[in-house]
Write a protein that binds this DNA or RNA. Structure first.
Lengths: 112, 112
DNA sequence: GTAATACTTAGCCTCATGGCTCAGTATTTG
DNA sequence: CAAATACTGAGCCATGAGGCTAAGTATTAC
């Protein structure tokens, strides 16, 4: 469970960076080499590689090196961590019988 | 659209911190004062307040101060930003006709 | 009206993040 | 085999995030 928490944290942290989210999006269209991916971002290769490693160490992508080219592949199942977290939030909300926040929110909007 | 990107970024950044995710979860059960929320975390009130402000400025919660007590309320709709992002990823994936990554992933697993 | 409560503000400190350069290493290519 | 390619490793640097203390303000309680 502490393990689980660490995993959730890693995934959210990995996705908190716009470059990394863009890599995930790009890899959604299909695998790509580090070099090709890097070409789409305004930074040097070593800098970009850090993002690749972050994504890989948090399980969002997998990579393989063949010859001198490292190919990156999206690990779609990993996005389920985010999905699950959202589902959990919804479940907590749905447990509630009252809907106090709606009331409060409405009151707050009236003040504007 | 740049506006949209900034919003997505803010929400992901806000959720990248475990304390803030926990606050979101806690507020899912109902509104709470800053003091009550802070009591659940091992940090000082000023430190905790920064998290509250981050959540509020990124639209994940709303707060109102009545007398000397500031009450926090979850803004559930804001989680849709994450939901939408995930849906977008799924849509990108589903556009694809081939399923090359599955092949690559399978090949990689065989190597282990 | 004094004291306690519940934040707020200001300012400081440390470490992690994200970017860079420069110098490898390993693979192709010509 | 020499040169180009595609990373990789090491190390530096600036910024910002997240934590702290100390002091201040506004409300409420006694």
């Amino acid at each position: 469970m502490a393990q689980y928490l660490a995993e959730v944290d890693g995934v959210f942290v990995a996705l908190a960076d716009p470059t990394r989210r863009e890599v995930v999006r790009r890899l959604g269209r299909g695998p790509a080499s580090v070099g090709d991916l890097a070409g789409e971002f305004p930074m040097t290769l070593p800098s970009f590689m850090k993002h690749v490693r972050t994504l890989e160490s948090n399980g969002l992508i997998r990579t393989v090196k063949v010859g001198r080219v490292r190919t990156c592949v999206l690990n779609r199942e990993r996005l389920a961590v985010v999905d699950d977290w959202l589902a959990e939030q919804r479940a907590i909300w749905e447990e509630r019988t009252d809907r106090l926040e709606q009331l409060v929110t409405d009151l707050m909007e009236e003040q504007e």
